[in-house]
């Protein structure tokens, strides 16, 4: 299970980084989303991987650590909110400028300030 889990996180991170390096904002946002999936799984694994172990003391023999699950929940909420913000910004930039390049060199001289 550990190997499968580690491979999944690695694959998600690789996909995320590859997409982040693209020049258009839509793939960049997708890349950020993939990275946040990877990190959520990674935080989850910080409490060690166990099967059939509830995070509640007294319900099972060896309960799992509840804190990483709380951390993951916080991270999911925050990354969801941030994704919504960046999607709005990308839409705003596309409507205002008429292109969705992320590279300032692709814009007008005004863009480069």
């Amino acid at each position: 299970m550990e190997v499968l889990f580690a491979l999944t996180i690695g694959l998600l991170t690789a996909v995320g980084i590859y997409l982040m390096l693209r020049l258009r904002s839509f793939p960049v946002i997708l890349g950020l989303t993939f990275l946040s999936y990877a990190v959520n799984l990674f935080i989850f694994s910080a409490g060690r991987l166990k099967t059939a172990a509830a995070p509640i003391v007294g319900t099972v023999e060896a309960p799992t650590d509840p804190l990483p699950q709380a951390l993951v929940l916080t991270a999911i909420v925050i990354s969801f909110g941030m994704t919504a913000v960046i999607v709005m910004m990308a839409l705003g930039a596309w409507l205002e400028l008429g292109h969705d390049g992320t590279d300032p060199a692709s814009g007008t001289p005004e863009d480069r300030g």
């Binding site: 946002i29 990275l35 913000v85 910004m89 400028l97 992320t102 300032p104 007008t108 300030g113």
Partner: peptide, 22 residues
Amino acid sequence: GPRIRAGLQYIAVNLLGSTLFL
């Protein structure tokens, strides 16, 4: 437009920073 474009880059860089933080 230029301000929102700069904002987009700023957000993307900081989201990457947040992921590294996690």
